[in-house]
């Protein structure tokens, strides 16, 4: 279908984008790859008045080591994450997760910043960044601030990002050789996850187990106490309120969370 009409701006620098957002923040929507936004616009579920296209800003597309962390530009595409040598060595979870997003065509357009900003609890990268204990760097005319991933997602499709802010960077710790795994359960390869579990360095992120990406805190605590993988994984769904849809009931999703967590922990332990 066809989106409702809108105005379009493609600022040539990050500063210009921030300025434009400050000026027309209420009616503007940021678009990078457009692969979260355009689908809902085509179904006329969203109708922004102004699209601010930051997809061409090369200054937002990078992956680099910065101290104990890896800094990833918000405009870095899923495909770029997949093939990044830096990530393969420093944060191998991320390329593996990126590889499960959508399909190759989607991965050639969609960006990590867009995925995090969209805030879909069924999406892959938010839970991975959450499991990584990452931070999201936001910029507005008021300056720059960092929000821990644990505080970034506030509800279904809502985040701590203000209308005049845009995500400029995602920072995640260098996990190096720490065990990691991503277990994604779908009916079809390019479906959204029914449930998925990201494990890295003893931390566990859950996809589609509530209105936001979640950490399996009970599992993490049990692991920290030295409980077995089986015992810890059995706690993966503690405190979650997963959704109901044609793909699954809450009970089913809780089972998946436990099974996938166990499998992910086992894989991570073997790495």
């Amino acid at each position: 279908m066809i989106p409702v009409g809108f105005d379009y701006a493609r600022p040539d620098s990050l500063d210009a984008a921030v300025a434009l957002l400050a000026e027309r923040g209420d009616e503007a929507t940021i678009m990078a790859g457009g692969h979260s936004l355009l689908p809902v616009m085509k179904l006329r579920l969203a109708a922004p008045e102004l699209i601010v296209d930051i997809g061409r800003l090369r200054e937002l597309n990078y992956v680099k080591v910065d101290g104990d962390e890896v800094a990833i530009g918000a405009g870095t595409r899923h495909h770029d994450l997949e093939v990044s040598d830096v990530l393969a060595a420093e944060v191998p979870l991320l390329p593996a997760v990126a590889r499960t997003v959508g399909d190759p065509q989607v991965r050639h357009r969609g960006t990590i910043g867009g995925s995090l900003a969209h805030g879909d609890p069924a999406s892959d990268l938010p839970a991975a960044v959450l499991a990584l204990d990452g931070t999201i760097v936001l910029r507005s005319p008021r300056g720059q601030r960092s929000v821990p991933a644990t505080e970034f997602w506030t509800g279904v499709f809502t985040t701590a990002k203000e209308p005049d802010e845009l995500i400029v960077e995602i920072r995640v710790p260098r996990t190096g050789s720490a065990g990691w795994a991503y277990e994604k359960f779908t009916r079809r390869a390019n479906d959204w996850a029914i449930v998925a579990v990201a494990v890295v360095d003893g931390r566990v992120g859950l996809v589609n187990m509530g209105s936001t990406p979640l950490r399996a805190s009970a599992t993490e605590a049990a692991l920290a106490e030295g409980k077995s993988i089986a015992e810890a994984a059995a706690l993966a769904a503690e405190g979650t309120e997963p959704p109901t849809d044609t793909a699954g009931t809450p009970e089913y999703r809780k089972n998946l969370a436990r099974v996938l967590t166990r499998r992910a922990l086992e894989t991570a332990a073997g790495r």
Partner: peptide, 8 residues
Amino acid sequence: TTPLRVWE
């Protein structure tokens, strides 16, 4: 025979 149905 969806995963949900089979599991149930």
